[in-house]
Amino acid sequence: MTIEKLKPYLPWITLVVLVLLVGAINPSFFNPTALLQLVADIVPLFIMALGMTFAIYIGGIDLSMQQVANLVTVVATVYLAQFGVFVALICIGAGFVIGAVSGWITTRQFVPSFVATLAMGFIALSGARFLSGERALSMNAEARDASFGWMFGNTAGVPHELVIAGVLLAIAWFLQSRTTFGRALKAVGAGELAAVASGLNVDRIKIMAFALSGTFAAIAGLMFSVKLSGGDANLANGFLILAIVAVLVGGTPLTGGVGGVINTLVGTLIVVVIRSAMVYLEVDATMQQMIFGIILIIAIAMTIDRSKMRIVK
């Protein structure tokens, strides 16, 4: 068995090994209730990583997700009293539009996706700062519970966040694996020129991929906002690196084409386990970002498909 054959299973192996290691250090890690809560806490990050998967799957990247989520926390908080549960539609619509515009700028205007999404992120930030009046806002607790109380809570010991995450994962998986759109995504990720030559409307597929990543960023922002019961132009900061790490550690390479949403599930779980390991090992909170940065570099180096890049710029 060579390393190349082993590669698709590496994320799974990493996850199992990590879980066993952390469990060996701290047996209370396997306490089911605590474990469920641990996973439930990371659901907004998982949703963001799901969206990021689409952008990376086609070989692009979406650096605006964090700012889209920030904007959504503000939008949700400001308009909750007025629109109730329908504020979710506004939020998701905003994410979809911002993502679609990023995609349009990338595909039709030939602006590399990291610049286009970076810039769109700052436009979103501008909107968030305007709407919030540069203050940290908080939700009316009653209105929140009436509209979004269902997001958090337990049914038969299962936190509702996990159900939401499961549903979104199922939708994303269905889109990716059981639709022509999903096939087209894979074709674009595997080789854009070949996809064009075979008559696919590549531009539309890429725009849709970015729109999806924007949509998922918005859902993540909405959940985050409800969870913390407020909105702020900086609330979701720090999520971007973790989302990218989750996707790449899961085995979807920066060059796109392979991997997918199930990989991102594994990647997110790896991130959770590493995080809780750092807590058990009493790694200083200030060191965590550095460690994730290094993990990111290692993950990219291990997954990237160098045969696709004649010149690495």
Binding site: I297, I300, I304, K313
Partner: peptide, 14 residues
């Protein structure tokens, strides 16, 4: 052989 935007972004986080 990592694209520079990602290599440097990760280094920035570090």
């Amino acid at each position: 052989k990592i694209p520079s935007f990602m290599a440097s972004l990760a280094m920035g986080f570090v």
